[in-house]
């Protein structure tokens, strides 16, 4: 990609991150997936700052819990994207609220 924008850079980073932790299971024709173990590793290595907040940590725990219900045990790209979205969404909400309260106190 030539000159990419901030947003395109961000999307690419998240894609590369999936590729970093995912692997193919047995046959090379299978799509890449992340095992639950590697997903936890990924969360603690790559999202350690974002998940220090207890609220966020709880959200992440819930996400992993939901994963456990999925008998498949391995996380596809779509599932990975949804999970990261589940982490991003409350953060987006918090940032919005913080900015609003700053405005109110001014």
């Amino acid at each position: 990609m030539g000159e990419c924008t901030d947003l395109e850079w961000a999307v690419q980073v998240l894609v590369n991150n999936f590729d970093k932790y995912s692997s193919r299971c047995c046959c090379c024709k299978n799509p890449r997936r992340i095992s639950k173990k590697d997903f936890r590793k990924m969360l603690s290595r790559e999202l350690n700052h974002m998940l220090t907040d207890t609220g966020n940590r709880r959200a992440a725990d819930k996400l992993i819990c939901d994963l456990d219900e999925n008998k498949d045990g391995r996380i596809s790209f779509q599932e990975y994207w949804t999970l990261i979205g589940g982490i991003a969404s409350p953060i987006a909400h918090i940032i919005r609220q913080q900015e609003q309260s700053v405005k109110l106190t001014k």
Partner: peptide, 28 residues
Amino acid sequence: DCQELTDVERAIETVISQFHCYAVKGQK
């Protein structure tokens, strides 16, 4: 605190900030 963040965290923040940046009418 950006300096301490990993690339993945900065990427997530970027995706969020772009949304907030354009969501003017809906107040983010």
